[in-house]
Design a protein around this nucleic acid. Structure first.
Lengths: 337, 337
DNA sequence: TTGAAAGCGATACCAT
DNA sequence: ATGGTATCGCTTTCAA
């Protein structure tokens, strides 16, 4: 590999000058810069990030911790982060802290804490107290997107409000028999998000004096297929059927819509469905949902951290990302009997 | 940040010994090792990867170039890669070379070529000649998953065979009016994959003496929603309707199944649908498909590169990943009229 | 088994 | 505007 010395030798200037010239610093004469650049190109020289990282203390890398990479929300946030990083010439180190918790400690020590990154974004992760301390002691800017984590600032929508608004929408349409499709997430992720959304559902039901039926509290585990199965089972039960379902995510809501189709139950006339997210597929299914914009959340998070790395004062407080009810065609008043 | 010197000082040994002790090298007495480790833990010392990377020339990082992170195939490969890397204490640098081609050169020079990674995996990417040369001149092991790239070894299924097998399955069932749902991929990705699969479709149609109708060659752009719309349009056209559809991916195939439902056309009795992939959702839709295992492909790729980094001889040739027809309930003989 | 010291490849300060 | 050189934090001979 050609090093800076090779370029310096070939050009007949010092390595200091080569370094300055290539980085576009001010105090280099134009002719020199051109000569250096020409030689560097000719030799195919590219500065080693490892070396300059050691010298400058900056890695030009941002770490992103995700619980999984197979969910729309995460990948969309990731793309938002990515686009900002690329514009700033930053790289993205992906830490996929999947469900198996055994790896977590290793990843923490061997990777995250090894000064490989200048800043860190965590998506919907839960952290143990020691983990959090270690993160903070690293001393570089960090941020959580999705679920709030005690002691760390975060970016996220009003989860409880989302659950409440979705439910209120159905209540306003006249529904009283409203099921909830929630369900815990995988291990290691932030369980608070689904719980909080469900809390919002309970809020709305309570305020309206409507009963929350235990047998109508379903778990779709954030999966379309599982939700489809679970809701199919619900719809086929003998006895009273709910006229509406509040789902904790669009993927689950779509599962519910498909389940209805499987059972010959028409949406929205016989069953209304609301989700949360505004997933890519939501429009195709006419899904009414609490829309949020994870791409924008990712962009915001990355920008904030980059600004702070650039010397801007860190904002201590969390940021509430916007979300709003988006009515499509999966919700309607219940049929009178 | 505590450095190795701090630990050395605190323990009363040399940095050399600290380094050896912490890495578990042989020539350190047990008492010393314990003392060092205790001190290191106490001080919260973690070796800087930047520094050790400079010293050893290894970054313990693998670069992964993806065209997008929002498609099942890519993320599944990614997870396969990830699990192998984690087991080997390697990190994953994600290069999301999305469609906008403007960034590519920058990413190449500022990131990929900057010796930040020990090896590189590219997913379904196309490379220009100069890009390829630069990659190879980097001198570290590289591999392509998905679409073959001239001059680089790759891991992937028999794409043409997949298209052929899918089509032959329908022909064997008695279908003759078979549409194709393909469509180019986004810019910068390997366009050869969809084209090659379609070639397989043409092969099968040709061998069976069946006509390939231009108006039945659809473009679903690898998107469920777009495929759903496009197929809906097809099914609503006046005149003869195909009795079967070969889709280039399961996501598109599912779009076709939903389109059929939208049009009141039942699958498989009035319309058979085959896909490629064995997507997570395929089973939920009873989708007949050419199954492949991207997770395993990712694992294999990562293992191969890791082995080579460990000194194993590099295998020059490409690897054909397995794929096979998986018959579910979305295909059946056509209805006689 | 342990330590001293020479790199690794850049950056940045201080001279010139 | 340019060059010399200490420095970043760790690894790795080579000696002891």
């Amino acid at each position: 590999m050609t090093s800076i010395d090779d370029v310096a030798r070939a050009t007949g200037v010092s390595t200091a000058t080569v370094s300055r010239a290539l980085r576009g610093l001010a105090n280099v004469s134009e002719p020199t810069r051109l000569r250096v650049q020409a030689k560097a190109d000719e030799l195919g020289y590219v500065a080693s990030l490892t070396a300059s990282g050691l010298a400058t203390g900056r890695t030009l890398t941002m770490g992103v911790v995700v619980p999984s990479v197979s969910r729309w929300f995460y990948t969309t946030v990731l793309e938002g982060i990515d686009v900002v990083l690329r514009a700033a010439n930053y790289d993205l180190m992906l830490y996929n802290l999947a469900s198996r918790s055994g790896d977590r400690e290793r990843v923490f020590h061997r990777s995250i804490l090894r000064k490989r990154t200048d800043a860190l974004i965590a998506l919907c992760m839960e952290f143990t107290e020691p983990e959090r301390e270690q993160l903070l002691s690293l001393g570089h800017p960090a941020l959580v997107i999705g679920g709030p984590v005690k002691g760390m600032r975060h970016i996220g929508i009003d989860e409880r409000g989302a659950g409440r608004t979705a439910t209120e929408h159905l209540i306003e349409l006249g529904h009283t028999a409203i099921a909830h499709l929630g369900g815990d997430d995988d291990e290691g992720m932030n369980r608070r998000v689904p719980l909080t959304r469900r809390l919002g559902y309970r809020d709305a039901m309570g305020s309206a004096g409507l009963p929350v039926r235990n047998e109508w509290m379903l778990s779709g585990r954030f999966s379309l297929a599982i939700s489809r199965a679970v809701v199919t089972e619900l719809l086929r039960r003998p006895g009273e059927r709910p006229t509406a379902i509040v789902a904790n995510s669009d993927e689950m809501a779509i599962g519910a819509i498909l389940a209805a189709a499987d059972c010959g139950i028409s949406v929205p006339s016989q069953l209304s469905v609301v989700g949360v997210d505004n997933h890519d597929l939501a429009v195709s299914f006419g899904l009414t949902t609490i829309a949020q914009d994870p791409y924008e959340q990712g962009r915001l998070a990355a920008s904030m951290l980059l600004d702070e790395l650039g010397g801007a004062p860190a904002r201590k407080s969390s940021v509430r990302a916007p979300s709003s009810l988006l009515v499509r065609t999966s919700t309607a008043p219940p049929v009178r009997r």
